[in-house]
Design a protein around this nucleic acid. Structure first.
Lengths: 326, 326
DNA sequence: GGGTGTTCTGGAACCGCTTCCCACGTTGTC
DNA sequence: GACAACGTGGGAAGCGGTTCCAGAACACCC
């Protein structure tokens, strides 16, 4: 760029990489010129010269649910701030995974990985991905890598407490798989697990027939409520392990002319943005924050942080809305 | 790499970029050494030296449906063959779009764009994206750019013909929007449009009350069938503008104890892989082929092809299965 | 004021390629 | 046999940065 800032190329580079060894006035002067010229360092040149790529790969099964989109928001925001680029790899197929592993992506385009694909690491021996780059896992416990995760069991316990407070029989919808793709349901199991444990502890264990298993869809919720109403008459309380399912429960209740919040109380999980508009109570996941943290942890590794594997735990927060306020 | 192939660096480069000015024996010799050493040219170096990035950006709203995944398969396969990289940008939010437009991605990482986000271009004056790089659109007509698209209206006509052949009253499920995100339904409109036109032409125009509008979900199909059965008694024929909806229709029929294929005939649209297992008749989109073509068209532009805007049209193919074979 | 450290700064060397110009060996021509 | 013309190949220069080393500038101290 412009050594027309009256400085040497080395100094410019130092400013770009904000090395501390630049006098503040000098830095300011250079930055002013950069600003003026709209100068942006060529990432390829930096990569080749510096040996780093300033790019982080994010592996996930797909991008389509609010969860992943919000996670990405968080990750991107953090990466952007630190001037890192992001490369996205939805891996929903072995073919695509293999292509990724063999592509130059791993070899040249990636300083580190954020993996939000639960079972991915477990396909490899020792739970270690075939790469020597640093890795941060999202929502998947791992002995080998740093991770961020939501305490789903805690969420389940919170749900139990909340519903117990409402009085009346309690039911739960467990999610098993998603149409057409294998879903590692450990997340959902943990939610229901915590839920059951808390109920049992409170002296009101959940009968097996009060649990309905279904796919991750609104229809699943509809079917669940149908079943529950065959067992008990209103008012009843339903814990749906995911918001979409809670939506289905609610819709079915409405269809039957039942008063949601009175006859049928339903509590979701995830904190999807649209639950607000529909008055659905839910356990909100701090997804964006988790994204931020994942990115930050990775960058710390990239900047040389060594030390033991770290796991950052996040807690859901209960948002009470119309569907559970009597 | 190894000038241990006994040639100069220029020759190696010529081999990599398969320039014709290399004698076959020389080329073979170099390639052998490359193979032996497992040599892969550093893309960053190529980018900086060559001024090109050998990377194509794919913009889409999200990645999660079979449609986009298959499209990506096609695009990636073609790009991989031509030794191009792919960068993926799910843009489902203005924030992310802006971030993309301002990132170094456009400036440095992208030789060209494949845009599979229907309405994206229309947000800009003249339907032109704010870039001077070549663009290929998928499933969106554009005056400005090359495109590939499916003839949805034709699909609708094919559906009409097929259902007319079965005899009995005809219904249609129109898709309006998807939960929580604006869906440019022009695709679905075209399908139903063609369907209606063909019926009218055959002297059996579709009554307004035979059309049910709903979201893109299986539940929508269930509700539709419910409504239809209030109007007519079996056997009836249903054209669902999307496979998921057809699935819902089918499930509802089963739930009511009706014989699918006899009492209720339903025809989907899209050709989702799972329709085969469930015996759902559908209009199959050649999605992967469309991806291939889009990538090829773009690369041709990148390699200097000029000339007028081209539009490649694709036709769906009717796959008859149990749901419409009496 | 000179000596001695510290900070800062300039720029050569280099990263791994592409490009371009020049040279070399062949073949074809008169 | 001399000379073009052409098909190939070699390698210097350059792409836009980072790194590192040497030197300049400034403080501080005796």
């Amino acid at each position: 760029m412009a050594e027309r800032a009256g400085v040497g190329i080395g100094t410019v580079s130092r400013v770009i990489n904000n090395s501390p060894a630049v006098r503040p006035e000098t830095r300011a002067k250079v930055q002013a010129v950069m600003e003026e010229l709209g100068y942006v360092p060529n990432p390829h040149a930096r990569r080749i010269a510096g040996g780093r790529s300033y790019t982080v790969s994010v592996l996930l099964p797909f991008v389509g649910t609010e969860f992943y989109l919000r996670l990405l928001e968080g990750i991107e925001a953090e990466l952007g701030e630190r001037r890192y680029d992001l490369a996205l790899f939805p891996l929903l197929s072995k073919r695509r995974l293999e292509r990724f592993l063999n592509s130059s992506a791993l070899a040249y385009h990636t300083d580190g990985l954020i993996v939000a694909s639960y079972d991915l690491a477990e396909r490899f021996p020792g739970g270690r991905l075939p790469t020597d780059r640093p890795v941060v896992m999202v929502d998947a416990r791992s002995r080998a890598y740093d991770s961020v995760f939501l305490d789903n069991a805690l969420g389940g316990r919170m749900a139990a407490e909340h519903l117990l407070g409402l009085g009346g029989p309690i039911f739960a919808v467990q999610i098993e798989e998603e149409l057409d793709r294998a879903f590692a349901s450990t997340v959902f199991s943990a939610r229901i697990g915590g839920f059951r444990a808390a109920l049992a502890q409170a002296g009101a264990p959940l009968p097996e027939r009060h649990v309905f298993r279904t796919r991750l869809s609104a229809e699943g919720g509809q079917m669940a409520l149908q079943r529950f109403l065959e067992i008990e008459s209103p008012p009843i309380n339903v814990f749906a392990a995911a918001d979409v399912v809670a939506l289905g429960v609610m819709e079915e209740a409405v269809r039957r002319g039942l008063a949601v919040g009175r006859d049928v109380r339903v509590l979701g999980f995830d904190g999807q943005p649209w639950t607000a508009a529909r008055g659905i109570s839910t356990l909100e996941q701090p997804v964006e924050k988790m994204g931020h943290t994942a990115a930050r942890m990775l960058i710390e590794r990239l900047q040389g942080h060594t030390g033991g594997v770290r796991h950052e735990r996040f807690e859901p927060s209960l948002v009470v809305r119309a569907t559970t306020s009597v």
